[in-house]
């Protein structure tokens, strides 16, 4: 990682948005992606909470990267991540209680979110604090953007609303922000046109469907620009194969055999 210092901070940030988008390109963190994207409000809340944990844990893990022994690094990472998740959950409970109810078990489950552990393993454990923080922020924003994209498609098509329940989040800035505006409701307009939302999209099956379509589109775009596709068949196709320790060990043992 000698060339890491040469890379610009801006590139570290933007790679998480599109090129290495954690959800659509690295196919990480699929569980919360499918579960909480039934509405844009939930998606924003989840994205922000995960981003805070991601940035904080990346900073601490990067700062401690020379102190943590290699053999116990995963438990050490988990302890650090879990501490931040606990803090975030307490803050959410105190300041945006409705979001805590809406996200349910998926808020504490940020502890085992692959994106956070993945960035700790692949990036923060090898790079300096500043780069790790920027990487975490980029990945977090990319995660939030992907969640919002999925949430928008699913909420508009499946429930006929957009940003419904946004007051649950806006309560952070006080009561009755934006005159109590609580999102768009397209249902009355749809009804007048004799239409109704396609409920499938807010059901789990619709989540998988939208997710699959978005990954296919991302692959199509990646193919057009000559980048590898995100595939789930075999580790060598993974865009993170270069930094994967499991693959490196396998290659080493293969070399030893040869």
């Amino acid at each position: 990682m000698a060339d890491a210092k040469k890379r610009s901070l801006g590139k570290e940030f933007t790679k998480g948005l599109v090129k290495e988008n954690p959800v659509l390109r690295l196919v990480l963190g699929t569980c919360p992606t499918l579960a909480v994207t039934t509405s844009v409000t939930n998606a924003i809340g989840m994205g922000i909470a995960a981003t805070i944990v991601l940035v904080c844990s990346n900073i601490v893990i990067s700062a401690l990267r020379k102190l943590i022994p290699d053999k116990v690094r995963i438990p050490a990472y988990i302890v650090i991540i879990a501490s931040f998740v606990t803090i975030v959950q307490m803050l959410v409970k105190a300041f945006v209680p409705a979001l805590n109810t809406a996200l349910g078990a998926f808020l504490p489950l940020i502890v085992v979110n692959c994106i956070i552990l993945g960035r700790a393993e692949a990036f923060a454990s090898k790079n300096t604090v500043l780069y790790s923080a920027v990487d975490g922020l980029g990945m977090g924003v990319g995660f939030t953007a992907a969640l919002c994209l999925m949430g928008t498609i699913r909420e508009v098509l499946g429930a006929g609303t957009f940003l419904n329940g946004i007051q649950d989040l806006l309560i952070l800035f006080g009561d009755n922000v934006l005159n109590g505006w609580n999102g768009f409701d397209l249902n009355s307009g749809l009804e007048a046109a004799g239409l109704q939302p396609i409920t499938l999209f807010i059901l789990p099956a619709g989540g998988f469907f939208v997710f699959g379509i978005l990954i296919a589109l991302a692959n199509k775009i990646a193919e057009g620009s000559g980048k590898p596709k995100a595939q789930l068949n075999g580790c060598e196709h993974c865009p993170m194969a270069g930094s994967c320790t499991k693959l490196a060990q396998e290659n080493k043992s293969k070399e030893a055999e040869a």
Binding site: Q196, I198, T199, L200, F201, L203, A205
Partner: peptide
């Protein structure tokens, strides 16, 4: 089945 879960009343 997609229609049944999406438009259950209709």
């Amino acid at each position: 089945i997609v229609m049944l879960v999406s438009f259950s009343s209709a």
